[in-house]
Each structure stands twice: as C-alpha cells, then as structure tokens.
Computed example of a mutant assay.
Amino acid sequence: MKEFQRKQLLERVNREGATIGATIPDEIEVQGETLDLQEFVFEIKRRDTIPSGERDRVDRAKRNLRRERIERLEKIEDDEVSYEEGERLVESIIGIDRALNALEQLEPVDLEQEAQVQEAADKKRWMNFLNKALGRDSDNKGIRR
C-alpha cells in the first residue's frame, strides 16, 4: 500500500462523524472469539439501562472491542496489510466504533451525583483561588481554624 493510501484510510477511521450511517457488524471476531455483535448491542439497548447482572458482561465486551479496535488500527498504521485489506479493516473499525458508541450511551447518568461532584470541584477551585490570593500554600498551612 502506498503511504497516501494508508493516510487516507487512517483519516477515514479518525474522521469526526465516521460512525454516522455506519452499521454494527452482524458478527465480528474479537480476541479469537466470534461475537454476534449486532444482536448483543440490540439486546442490551432494548433494556434502556444495563441490568446489574449484565454490567460485567457489557464492560468485558467493551474492553475487548476497544482492544480489537486498537489491534486492527495498528495493522493499518504499521503498514502490515494491503490497501484492500485496509479497506476491510477500516469498515470493521467503524463498525466497532458504532457498537461502542451504542453501548456507551447506555451508561446511566446520575444527575444528583454529578452535581455533587461538580460542587465539590467548584469548592476546591475556590479554596485554591483564595489561598493563592491570600498568599497561602495550597496545603492549607497558615490557615487558622
């Protein structure tokens, strides 16, 4: 494969919105095992949230998909494949990305917890600002209580 072709393939993978209109592959070989990816994603998405009993299975699948994505991308980056094989790898990587996006959207968002984390971070930033403005160390030395 020529260098410009390899760069073109890599650009397609990293393009913003590459997964728009992409389909999740029916099956994919991930870490040596065949996974019915589309069925798995749709089965999990039907539930709106990930049941606690399925969380480990979903997390393991996401880790394996990320690992497989990296391995496939490295084959293109390291110029180990022909242009035609690179095209197939790009399509599969985009499919993996689509599946990962679908699975990531299922993570429950705890708004109350996020608000508490944000408030704690705001307080910490404010205290750091006050300490700097008053010429005190950030480890609170010199602050009377």
Rank of each mutant, 00 (worst) to 15 (best):
V13M: 11
V13N: 01
V13I: 15
N14R: 09
N14Y: 08
N14L: 10
R15Q: 14
R15K: 15
R15F: 05
E16Y: 06
G17E: 06
G17S: 06
G17M: 11
A18V: 09
A18L: 04
A18G: 08
A18R: 15
A18Y: 06
A18M: 11
T19A: 14
T19C: 12
G21T: 04
A22Y: 07
A22S: 14
A22G: 08
A22V: 04
T23L: 10
T23S: 15
T23I: 09
T23A: 14
P25H: 06
P25M: 10
P25T: 13
I28F: 00
E29V: 14
E29F: 07
E29T: 10
V30L: 05
V30P: 04
Q31V: 10
Q31M: 12
Q31E: 15
G32C: 09
G32N: 03
T34P: 01
L35Q: 04
L35R: 08
L35G: 01
D36N: 11
L37F: 01
L37E: 04
Q38T: 02
Q38K: 12
Q38S: 09
E39N: 00
E39S: 03
E39Q: 07
E39H: 00
F40G: 00
F40H: 01
F40D: 00
F40P: 01
V41C: 05
F42S: 00
F42T: 06
F42W: 02
F42A: 00
E43D: 06
E43R: 02
E43V: 00
E43T: 09
E43N: 06
I44A: 02
I44T: 13
I44V: 13
K45C: 01
K45Q: 10
K45P: 00
D48C: 02
D48N: 12
D48Y: 04
T49S: 07
T49Y: 05
T49W: 00
T49L: 06
T49K: 05
P51D: 11
P51A: 13
P51M: 05
S52A: 13
G53A: 06
G53K: 11
E54T: 08
E54C: 04
R55W: 02
D56Y: 09
D56M: 09
D56A: 04
D56R: 14
R57Q: 08
R57I: 06
R57D: 08
V58N: 03
D59Y: 02
R60D: 14
A61E: 13
A61T: 15
A61V: 13
K62H: 02
K62Y: 09
R63G: 11
R63N: 11
R63M: 14
N64Q: 15
N64E: 15
L65M: 13
R66W: 13
R66E: 12
R66N: 13
R66D: 05
R67N: 12
E68P: 07
R69N: 09
R69C: 08
I70V: 15
E71C: 02
R72G: 12
R72C: 13
L73M: 13
L73K: 11
E74V: 01
E74Q: 15
E74N: 14
E74S: 13
E74R: 14
K75Y: 05
K75C: 10
K75H: 02
I76Q: 05
I76T: 05
E77K: 14
E77H: 05
E77W: 06
D78G: 02
D78N: 05
D79G: 00
D79W: 09
D79N: 11
D79Y: 06
D79H: 08
D79T: 06
